[in-house]
Write a protein that binds this DNA or RNA. Structure first.
Length: 637
DNA sequence: GCCGTTTTCGGCCCGACTGTTTTCAGTCG
């Protein structure tokens, strides 16, 4: 769903997914009910911690940090009552940079003119970023930051409080911090004259829920919860619901989800909305009107429901799917065709009948382009491609023929190899690589050489039993040690069908060190795949400082395949990085990292990342039969 | 502040819900 504040408050948490003391994953299913706990100071960026200069380091600026800085400038300008289009310009630049598949500092290369190629970045912002990259500071930011009291921006976190209200607190009541506001609310008649009772109550409530409503959860968690809400709503008001769908970032399958958007068709909207706000999952009703309601569930997630008529379905679904930037672009295109596009219809600017679209296909057709899969609607080139009818044919789950990372109870999985085979067969796969951990990962009961050779015998027996109907590959998830060496000897590695190398420890190494370490492993002739490259765990661990551009170059040089790990908390490579990799011509594999026979369902999330990364079947090697795939492995070239 | 198959100046997506300054501003998506 296109959210204006998506580029302000909620987005901040989306950039730094919430931390929780998530235990090491044993079973992917354990994540289904895992809602990360609220944020803490450790995920704050150097921007949010204040002075850029103090926090400046040799590390390049990440897109997330640059986006947070531009976003913060937008917030300050908004509080100052600046021209709203100037504010929007900073927010748009922030949004584009955050979703850019290339590091902006990398694009810069010492020349601000290079930055102008980024949509939404003009002369002024390019020059400011140039200064930031050269000096580690931005004088414009320092200047405007000094013009408003410290702490004022934080008041924007309160739900329902925007820049105008913050400015009023400051100028009318001299309230500039959250603590001062809390104190003033103790005696509102005296401290906050002219503010109504209802507003006072909302402020008190809002302060209490800071953090709760901005928590982003893993895609899988949100999808399962949305399924639950829809099922319950169908049970209670199903007779009145003709159609129901998810919308927003959930429908676009973003790796993390801020809130759940639902969309329904009904001739009895009040009945459906009443049922919705009374669902057992609902803790609090934020708003309820004639066509929409917003609630907060007991698990802390916000859910919105819109109810409409069949004739509006296409425009409404298109609008509520977003993204915000995508909608701004599509509405702009409509305007140039003399049409005003809203969630209800196309209205003709010069009068005349409204045009209704009961399907999304009709909406895009009127806009002069082909239907765009929701996963691509991020204003990152999909509109231009759709106008030329050159959208890629995105990969689908059913294209996968095998899974090259999964675990049995030989290491940290919970099932015997045979049970994993049956789990994979049930899902239509024809081969799996059993990639139990190597001995270096002591916590995962890693295999030494002796146990490895025992495991191979079992795999031989199973393959014999299936007699070609299914193939189990002898493989390993070998640990790349802190110095870049592998923790199994070469003669053993040579005996596997394929080798997946990953990092699990020393992930806080410097950019230089961890990059050098990974490149060393990628140059090893027996390392076929580099798995879950950045080591990120959504909600609990940031990506390592690994220089992915160098990794991509090394992948091309060495023929090392890169992986998209579909475990909901990993999603690694993530969408933008996967897109960059295939743009450069690097072949990928999509794996579940299953630790349980049902864990193969997580391939679905890997496919989601791939589709968001514009990836086709041809880019992914495990869409091939094993006999074809094996020829593409480095060891067999 | 950005941007251009109407434009280098004059625009910049559209609507629901809330609270309250009862006709609309502020916030949000």
């Amino acid at each position: 769903m296109p959210r204006k504040r998506e580029i302000a408050k909620p987005k901040r948490s989306e950039r730094s997914p919430q931390r929780s003391p998530a235990a090491a994953r044993v079973d992917a299913d354990a994540n289904k009910s895992n809602i990360p706990a609220s944020d803490d100071a450790s995920s704050r960026t150097r921007v949010e911690q204040g002075n850029l200069r103090d926090a400046a380091s040799e590390r390049p600026w990440s897109n997330q940090e640059i986006a947070a800085l531009l976003d913060r400038i937008g917030d300050i300008l908004a509080i100052q009552g600046e021209n709203r289009f100037k504010i929007i310009a900073y927010q748009r630049a922030s949004d584009v940079i955050e979703h850019s598949s290339r590091g902006v500092q990398d694009v810069w290369q010492g020349d601000p003119a290079n930055l102008r190629a980024i949509p939404g970045v003009g002369e002024a912002i390019a020059d400011k970023l140039d200064e930031l990259f050269r000096t580690g500071q931005m004088s414009y930011y320092e200047k405007i930051r000094a013009q408003i009291p410290e702490g004022l921006v934080e008041l924007l976190q309160i739900p329902g409080v925007g820049p105008k209200t913050v400015a009023k607190f400051w100028k009318d009541f001299n309230i500039t911090t959250l603590d001062a506001l809390k104190a003033a609310l103790e005696n509102p008649e005296k401290n906050l004259p002219g503010i109504g009772d209802k507003t006072i109550e909302n402020l008190k409530q809002g302060i209490g829920t800071i953090g709760l409503h901005t928590t982003r959860v893993q895609l899988a968690t949100a999808v399962y919860f949305a399924d639950e809400l829809i099922a319950e709503l169908q049970k209670r008001a199903g007779a009145s619901i003709q159609k129901i769908s998810t919308g927003g970032s959930l429908r676009r399958l973003r790796p993390t989800i801020g809130d759940i958007d639902l969309l329904a068709v009904s001739n009895e909207p009040q009945l459906v909305l009443d049922a919705f706000v009374k669902l057992p999952q609902v803790r609090e009703v934020l708003a309820k009107g004639e066509s929409k309601a917003s609630v907060v569930a007991h698990n802390g997630m916000q859910a919105d429901l819109r109810v409409l008529e069949p004739k509006n379905w296409g425009t409404a679904l298109q609008y509520f799917t977003g993204s915000r930037e995508h909608n701004i672009r599509t509405r702009d295109i409509a305007l140039k065709k003399g049409l005003s596009l809203s969630e209800w219809s196309f209205a003709k600017l010069k009068g005349g009948r409204e045009i209704f679209c009961d399907t999304e296909e009709k909406v895009y057709e009127l806009l002069g382009m082909e239907w765009i899969p929701p996963e691509l609607r991020e204003a990152s080139g999909e509109i231009e491609a759709a106008q030329k009818h050159q959208l890629p044919k995105l990969i689908e789950l059913s294209d996968l023929k095998g899974d090259l990372q999964c675990h049995s109870r030989w290491s940290d999985g919970v099932a015997p190899i045979k049970a994993m085979v049956e789990g994979a067969r049930k899902r239509g796969l024809k081969y799996i690589a059993i990639t139990d951990h190597s001995k270096g990962l002591g916590v995962a009961n890693g295999l030494d050489e002796k146990r490895t050779r025992e495991q191979w015998k079992e795999i031989d027996r199973i393959n014999h039993e299936y007699d070609g109907a299914f193939r189990v590959l002898k493989s390993v998830e070998v640990e790349i040690r802190a110095d870049g060496t592998l923790d199994l000897p070469d003669d053993l590695l040579a005996g596997y069908d394929l080798v997946l190398a990953t990092t699990h420890s020393s992930l806080t190494q410097s950019r230089e060190k961890i990059t050098e370490r990974v490149l060393k492993a990628m140059h090893h002739p027996l390392v076929d795949i580099f798995g879950h490259p950045t080591g990120q765990l959504i909600g609990s661990r940031e990506p390592s400082a690994l220089d992915l551009e160098q990794v991509f170059r090394a992948a091309l040089e060495t023929g090392t395949i890169l992986e998209i790990d579909g475990t909901p908390e990993r999603m690694d490579l993530t969408d933008v990085n996967a897109r960059r990799a295939v743009e450069l011509g690097i072949p990928l594999v999509i794996d579940s990292d299953a630790h349980h026979p049902d864990g193969f369902d997580d391939l679905r999330w890997g496919i989601a990342m791939a589709r968001r990364g514009w990836i086709t079947k041809e880019n992914v090697l495990n869409t091939l039969e094993w006999d074809e795939l094996r020829k593409r492995l480095k060891r067999n070239l």
